[in-house]
Design a binder for these strands. Structure first.
Lengths: 247, 247
DNA sequence: TCAAAAGTGTTTTTCGTACACCCATGA
DNA sequence: TCATGGGTGTACGAAAAACACTTTTGA
């Protein structure tokens, strides 16, 4: 329903695109968002199901036509808020722009894709035709959207290694074993909480809140609560290799 | 002269943009190229001087309007070949797309920027209004092009640390002291040839050709010639940090 | 034989992982 | 007091920078 509006620019764009690809050289331009959240220890992406051709029944990234007076990032935030009711983005960054002439059956359409992150633990209300899917098991995907999700996964994975982008995956406060599960889900491999703690502490990414969480029914030492020191993107380990002399 | 054609899309776009930003929502789309080459031990960027307002007398990145049937990368290569006669790109990759409504005084224009590299040692013939400028001392720059050059520098610098992108800066064969000068120019800090040699050899990026260069008039041991093992982009050191267990 | 430039051996440092061990809690 | 999960101390290995030393050439 909310997505019906997206049908125009994404699906039924024969009229629009013929105008847009006319002799003035302009092409239709849309923005797309790969919104990730860790849900049940899996990296998940927000998709909506197309009701009309092309790609009827397949899943697509949320997004839509770029407005005449808005910036690209601005447009992504607007469309996520309007169409899938997501307003809790902890991070948003541009991924890539795709413009192959054949990428869109309905006519020439350029798409600028963004990577958006929602912290774990919250559950935004989304429309009925919209759902979270594990990024590792994508359903039938429309257009080139599967490839775009792949780009987003690689970007997130890389940035976890040299920035503090974990702040955007984690809730405001967390235990180290929780955080290591988020990292495991996003990286796709095991992450030992004990070492993650020291790495992120040494890099100054996280700090103790002083509080702790009582141990569960099966006992165990209470877990200390941590938070990220800053909640905006910073490069914390600019490269272990080829660094300037004198450390 | 060759750049005069670029005046249309970049400068005198009042008519075009009014059509492009009309109620169909399309906007003008251009591609831009940040073409780097190491020249006289300095990282240099190819710019052309604007003859007409806006930004008359300032320098701009080469590029122009995206054609109706061409892909983005394809368009960059075409425009570089046609307008500045550069056909020797050793590497080309997409950087970012800028679409702030106010970025272009003549009307709404989206720009997708690319990073292009030309190997050191060749000297492409460029039009008379086009020149190489040190990336560290940019002249008066049109639009947001100075910021785009900054993005390109950061991208190149980062990729030198974990990919084999040096292949695109160096000529087919080179001595280690030459290569260390290219790295120094691109990274902005000293790079010891002796360590660079071992790092790149360990990573399998370079190999000896078996030949060597006779020493100069002041003597010295002849330098061995090296080449990059592959001349397409590869990630050679996927991350020293947060790597999967079992090394 | 000396200066200059290239190349090698070795040391030091940093960083991340692995692993053993200790701590705090609930039943 | 025992199982359970959290936290600390330490060892190990990889990788890069620093630096002393050797090699190979021209004059």
């Amino acid at each position: 329903m909310a997505q019906g509006e997206t049908e125009g620019p994404v699906g039924g764009s024969a009229v629009v695109s013929s105008a847009a690809t006319g002799k003035d050289g302009g092409a239709a331009h849309e923005v797309l968002a790969v919104v990730f959240q860790i849900r049940q220890n899996r990296l998940s992406v927000l998709l909506w199901c197309r009701a009309l051709p092309p790609f009827e029944g397949c899943w697509a990234l949320p997004g839509g036509r770029l407005g005449a007076t808005e910036g690209l990032g601005e447009s992504v935030r607007r469309q996520l808020a309007q169409k899938v009711d997501v307003r809790d983005l902890s991070h948003l960054e541009q991924l890539e722009t795709r413009g192959e002439p054949g990428r869109h059956p309905g006519g020439r359409t350029l798409a600028t894709a963004y990577l958006g992150l929602v912290p774990a633990g919250i559950d935004p209300v989304v429309p009925h035709d919209t759902a979270w899917h594990p990024a590792a098991e994508l359903p039938c995907m429309a257009f080139d959207h599967a490839a775009i999700v792949g780009s987003a996964r690689r970007r997130l994975r890389a940035k976890l290694s040299y920035t503090n982008i974990g702040f955007a995956l984690a809730p405001p406060e967390f235990t180290m074993s929780e955080l290591s599960r988020y990292y495991r889900a996003a990286l796709g491999h095991d992450v030992a909480a004990t070492n993650l703690r020291r790495v992120l502490l040494r890099r100054g990414q996280i700090e103790e809140t002083g509080r702790s969480v009582p141990s569960g029914r099966s006992g165990g030492r209470p877990a200390a609560l941590f938070r990220f020191r800053t909640r905006s993107l910073e490069i914390t380990d600019a490269f272990a290799v080829l660094r300037p002399p004198q450390g």
